[in-house]
Design a protein around this nucleic acid. Structure first.
Length: 572
RNA sequence: CGGGGUGUGGCGCAGUCCGGUAGCGCGCAUGCUUUGGGAGCAUGAUGUCGGAGGUUCAAAUCCUCUCACCCCGACCA
């Protein structure tokens, strides 16, 4: 492609709307343009990148034995109602009505549709396992779209669905997908980290997320991993080995103390001169229709996902001020378990071993010292409600410590069990003659998100640095003086010959000064730059520069094509 | 949805407090010079000042309503 014929609208300034480096670069380098919040045009360069990623993913899916199909973007409400998710998913599902006032939605995921598709047609265990996938546009009406393609409302995704007869077979199908994911992401140029994830609204029995680790604000997820074994999990999922300390202090008399305006742990610990570990937070939540109080040590942060999972509720939010006032008789910030009525107590394991701790007194501006259980309040079971923290002990191995990183989730895998097959009545006849629901799995790769993750991961002050496998073009040729016919002639010749060798080349034939061409070439991130210029011509060489390493080579004009290819082949 | 902010030529912004001919940089067009890391000079084009209503002799500027977008939070691939 010749630049003069291409459509690559680069910008000098960062667009005001972009926050992340990757978002800024994709805008500035002419890859994307916003249409409306969370919805983008993909320009020619972006289209090529997406195509590259798509092709890699498709090849690895096909290699794994998965079968490509295309399902609709528009779904009837009925199938979502049948699975029960019409009511559960709620606002982020894009819904609309047709001219007959029938409800439809735009698909954010296709468990229902694919299950409905195979229902009655996959009938025998002899036809299993099956893996169906598609690469297609999805919609999710994000509450707050942001970060460009990272959290868009419209995005491209590869989603696959497996159907197995039993757990053992499912395990194989699952591992098969995991293997395919590693191959695909590796080919895209990523070092990928697989971590255990929460199953969330998908339901099911197990999940993993595939993360690109970055050290920028683009790293929206925190993960914890063990420094000695292969344990790794999202912050929502991560646990750690608790110390199981049991205090042997003697129980002291409960004592009310005046703590005017001290609502936070920091304020109370500062005022009472006690470590946060000696406090127990009482957090009131509204879980569906019930109010629960979560008790957790003062120095810990609550993991609401763990609480939701334990309660099995659909909706969890902090109780509002009125509710807190009604139940505790006090302002927010002074709740405690002592004589807290009509509220279910959910207690973190660590609270069990504590003695003589501080809680709110259910009275504005007062706390209790020396609260103890079961004397002052009772509970029967405890649960892990804590956010993990770096430095804690690994839950899997003996000596490991947890470390944390931030990452971008580019893929996920879910074991769904029979949630969808059961609710939609998708069964097969097993070897024993019994009708059974399929054991399902679902597997996603965010194509557009992967593209942006690459930019977030691979860039420098000058612009994008695409891994070769997903770069829109492999080589860019620049001639520095557009009024020098000899340069143009040589550049054109190299362009034609390299293209003849099957390499994707961009020739910057614009009548621009050399500086502009260099800047733009770096900005759009082409892996290899070939410079035809006055200096080189005198020496009888062209310069070849690797975007990634900055490494520069000189190649004799007489054997330029071979020389360039040789260098190009070594680029990652 | 709650909190904060922004809408002014294609892009980035000033002007708004204190009403009085709509500006700057980049980009764009033409010409000359220049030609290895976002050139210089000259000339030029491009604006419903987000929209609607109101106040006023006069509104980008003040008032009311509204829409869009961005940031923080809740949500999430």
């Amino acid at each position: 492609m010749k630049w003069s014929q291409a459509y690559i609208p680069t910008l000098r300034d960062d667009p005001a709307e972009a926050e992340l480096i990757s978002h800024k670069l994709l805008m500035r380098a002419g890859y994307i343009r916003k249409v409306t919040a969370g919805v983008y045009n993909y320009l020619p360069l972006m289209q090529r990148v997406l195509q590259k990623i798509t092709n890699i993913v498709r090849e690895e899916m096909d290699r794994s034995g998965a079968l490509e199909i295309t399902m609709p973007v528009l779904h009837p409400a009925e199938v979502w109602q049948a699975s029960g998710r019409w009511d559960v998913i709620g606002r982020e599902q894009m819904r609309l009505q047709d001219r007959h006032n029938r409800w439809l939605c735009l698909g954010a995921t296709h468990e229902e549709i694919v299950t409905d598709l195979i229902k009655g047609e996959l009938q025998s265990y002899r036809q299993l396992p099956k893996n169906l996938y598609q690469i297609q546009v999805k919609f999710r009406d994000e509450i707050r779209p942001r970060f460009g393609l990272m959290r868009g409302r419209e995005f491209i995704m590869k989603d696959a669905y497996t159907f197995d007869r039993d757990e053992k077979s499912q395990e194989k199908s699952y591992q098969n997908m995991v293997d395919a994911y590693f191959r695909a992401f590796e080919r895209c140029g990523f070092e990928i980290r697989k971590v255990e994830g929460d199953t969330g609204a998908m339901g099911g029995t197990g999940a993993h997320e595939f993360m690109v680790i970055v050290d920028t604000d683009g790293g929206e997820s925190t993960i914890y991993y063990c420094d000695s074994c292969d344990y790794a999990a999202t912050d929502e999922k991560a646990g750690f080995r608790e110390h199981g300390e049991t205090s042997d202090e003697e129980m002291l008399e409960r004592e009310e103390v005046h703590t005017p305006g001290m609502k936070t742990i920091e304020e109370v610990t500062g005022y009472l001169k006690l470590p946060a570990k000696k406090l127990v937070k009482t957090l009131l939540y509204r879980a569906d229709d019930e109010v629960v109080a979560a008790l957790i040590r003062g120095d810990r942060n609550i993991n609401e996902v763990k609480l939701v999972n334990y309660l099995g509720c659909n909706n969890l939010e902090m109780a509002d001020e009125q509710t807190v006032m009604k139940l505790t008789g006090a302002d927010v910030g002074f709740a405690g378990p002592y004589e807290l009525k009509d509220v279910r107590l959910v207690v973190d394991h660590e609270v069990k071993g504590l003695r003589n701790f501080v809680t709110g007194a259910n009275k504005t501006d007062y706390h209790f010292l020396n609260v103890n259980h079961p004397r002052d309040f009772k509970f029967h079971e405890t649960v892990d409600l804590k956010m993990a923290e770096a430095g804690e002990r690994c839950p899997r191995c003996e000596n490991g410590k947890l470390k944390s990183d931030r990452g971008i989730e580019v893929g996920n895998t879910f074991k769904l069990g029979t949630k969808y097959s059961s609710s939609l009545g998708a069964n097969f006849i097993d070897e024993d003659g019994n009708e059974k629901p399929f054991i399902m799995g679902s597997y996603g790769i965010g194509i557009t998100r992967t593209a942006q993750a690459a930019v977030e991961r691979f860039n420098d002050k000058d612009g994008i640095i695409w891994p070769k496998a997903i770069a829109p073009y492999g080589i860019i040729i620049i001639y520095t003086n557009s009024s020098d016919d000899k340069q143009i002639e040589l550049a054109e010749r190299l362009y034609m010959e390299l293209r003849g060798k099957g390499i994707e080349v961009l020739l910057d034939d614009r009548d621009e000064r050399a500086g502009v061409k260099f800047k733009d070439a770096d900005l759009i991130g082409i892996p290899l730059k070939v410079v035809v210029g006055e200096r080189g011509m005198k020496e009888g060489i062209v310069e070849v520069k690797i975007r990634n390493t900055g490494e520069a080579h000189k190649v004799n004009i007489t054997e330029a094509v071979e020389g360039i290819i040789r260098i190009f082949e070594k680029v990652d």
